[in-house]
């Protein structure tokens, strides 16, 4: 509770919490709140302006923009949380393993992390999806690969910082096995900064997914993704501005919300910054 109060006092904290909560609620309740089926086409109603019938208008195939944005939130959140979950768990496991392994293995893992991170995230994701093909599953898997080093490097650095701490040494002296030390002592002590990093990576993943879908390399039609919607909006911009405007706004709201939440969390969880504020 204290954390929430502290968060709300941070600049942008309230907005961030509201935006993220709204997004999560919309994504969860999509089938209940979407006024139309997101993929129901009605070419006779194409490119309609916002009205009481279609609150945000329709796209070029007569689909309801609001319904597609609502379902798009599911895709954006679903993909970003899946990517973060996969890359966080794999990255943390690799990072801890590298930190606790002999130097040669540590260097090898760090080398792989360096190679992956030497490419800009979006370029690497583009290249991987171009090679392995588009689609929901591939996007999740391949973007996860891009993000593994983010978490792996932090986990490794944090583990190195505490691996010789007295409480770890004490556990070892008491005969605890490595897995027990990692699970009960290392992980709980390094997860804070990683959680903040995860929060700050969510908007990046949302942007990458949207970018891939915009380029036709992400989620395949007819599944509604904000990137697909933005692409359709751009294509038909001369005839209707609504789709591009609303899908752009949804992206801005989501990325800004998660980015501000990440920053607020970082400030709240970091004792030095907390003291300063």
């Amino acid at each position: 509770m204290q954390a929430f109060i502290a968060l709300s006092r941070r600049p942008g904290g309230t907005f961030a919490m509201l935006a993220v909560t709204l997004l999560c609620l919309v994504a969860i309740a999509a089938p209940l709140i979407a006024p139309y089926a997101p993929n129901a086409i009605a070419p006779a109603n194409r490119l309609m302006e916002p009205s009481w019938q279609h609150l945000l208008g329709t796209d070029h195939l007569g689909r309801d923009i609001l319904s597609r944005l609502i379902y798009g939130a599911r895709v954006a959140l679903g993909i970003s949380l899946s990517v973060i979950a996969i890359s966080l768990s794999t990255g943390v496991a690799l990072g801890i393993a590298a930190a606790l392994s002999p130097r040669a293995i540590d260097l090898a893992v760090v080398g792989v992390f360096d190679i992956v991170t030497s490419f800009p995230s979006i370029i690497l994701a583009l290249a991987l999806v171009a090679v392995f093909g588009p689609g929901l599953g591939n996007v999740v898997l391949l973007v996860s690969i891009v993000f593994i080093p983010h978490f792996g490097r932090v986990a490794r650095a944090q583990t190195i910082a505490i691996r010789n701490s007295p409480f770890i040494e004490a556990e070892k002296v008491l005969g605890a096995e490595t897995w027990r030390v990692v699970l009960h002592h290392v992980t709980p002590n390094i997860i804070g900064p990683i959680f903040v990093l995860a929060c700050m990576d969510i908007p990046v993943v949302i942007t990458i997914e949207a970018g891939l879908s915009f380029l036709g390399l992400g989620v395949r039609p007819p599944l509604a993704s904000w990137g697909n919607l933005l692409n359709d909006g751009y294509t038909y911009l001369d005839q209707s501005v609504w789709l591009a405007t609303f899908s752009g706004l949804a992206l801005v709201l989501a990325t800004l919300g998660f980015a501000l939440l990440g920053e607020a969390l970082r400030d709240t969880l970091d004792p030095k910054l907390r003291k300063a504020l």
């Binding site: 993929n39 129901a40 086409i41 070029h60 036709g216 039609p221 007819p222 692409n231 359709d232 294509t235």
Partner: peptide, 15 residues
């Protein structure tokens, strides 16, 4: 062939 018009046709056929 990937372009906006053919994607639109394909989505209508799909539906």
């Amino acid at each position: 062939e990937a372009n906006a018009r053919y994607e639109a046709i394909a989505q209508i056929i799909q539906a």
